[in-house]
Design a protein around this nucleic acid. Structure first.
Length: 273
DNA sequence: ATGACGGTTCTTAACCGA
């Protein structure tokens, strides 16, 4: 059976609901994980998703900022939200898919949806509290990992991790070394977390370095497609037990060219389970 | 070539994103 999942930082789900619906109609992933929904839960545009068969919805939204949502054609056995850094912000949501575990003695498939703090402008935690928050969030992810033991159950970790970890994840490694999202203190933390948790970077498995791979292009670039000064900030990591099932990954760059787009492109993984 | 932008808010300027 084929299973596909898309992660997309939509930068306001209400403003871009028509684009989300268009994407779902064209690509039909089984599960969609959104970040930066910027939408309180009671204002989430549920009807549009239900009409396309995404009946199962888990929300962690707040007003104005951040916000994650997971929409699915497969029922959930469980949903979980964890707070990070003792803040009330909406940056995490885990769902466990029903029918993927207990009946045959296995642990169910969990999907972890994250929106890691952006980190502000100055890459110095001493003078920039946002960067300090980002580093603390990445440190806390390591502790979270020890409780969830992703190597021991089928799981997928996705989201806007706001870090471009490898040299060919940015348009210029040299130019961005001191730019938030690609500084060594961030990239080393993220890579350490991934390695300790034993997650496999699905996109880089199928598009290994040194190929340049991006998922985000700044709004400020006047000709984003020609300049192509992107970064790979959005990620899909799969548990080691799922790697034999990894069939395809796709970054749908064309949505960045739609009218009034998100600055992030959707990233999709397909597994043959 | 980190901005020439774009989102939200008890809006009309401030804040945040990355």
């Amino acid at each position: 059976m084929s299973f596909s999942l898309t992660t997309w930082n939509i930068n306001s789900v209400r403003l871009r609901i028509d684009q989300v619906i268009r994407f779902l109609g064209e690509h039909e992933p089984d599960v969609l994980c959104l970040q930066e929904t910027k939408c309180p839960n009671d204002q989430f545009p549920l009807a549009a998703f239900r009409a396309l068969g995404y009946q199962y919805v888990a929300l962690n939204g707040q007003k104005g900022y951040h916000g994650v949502a997971t929409l699915s054609r497969i029922p959930f056995a469980e949903t979980m939200i964890r707070q990070f850094c003792d803040k009330e912000d909406s940056r995490h949501l885990t769902v466990e898919l029903a029918g993927t575990g207990a009946s045959n003695g296995r642990k169910g498939l969990r999907i972890h949806n994250f929106y890691v703090p952006a980190g502000g402008d100055i890459p110095d935690p001493e003078v920039n509290p946002r960067f300090a928050h980002k580093l603390a969030f990445l440190d806390e992810l390591m502790l979270w990992n020890e409780q969830t033991l992703p190597a021991e159950r089928p799981s997928i970790l996705v989201g806007d991790l706001n870090v471009a970890p490898y040299e060919t994840d940015v348009w210029s490694h040299k130019a961005l070394l001191n730019v938030v999202s690609h500084t060594p203190v961030e990239t080393e933390r993220l890579e350490r977390f991934r390695q300790v948790s034993q997650y496999v970077d699905a996109v880089r498995t199928l598009q290994p370095e040194p190929e340049k791979v991006y998922t985000w292009w700044s709004y400020r670039s006047p000709d984003w497609a020609a300049a192509n000064k992107g970064r790979r900030l959005d990620h899909i990591w799969i548990a080691p037990s799922l790697t034999p099932a990894l069939a395809a990954t796709k970054i749908t760059r064309e949505t960045r060219g739609w009218e009034r787009p998100s600055d992030h492109a959707p990233v999709t993984v397909t597994l043959q389970i």
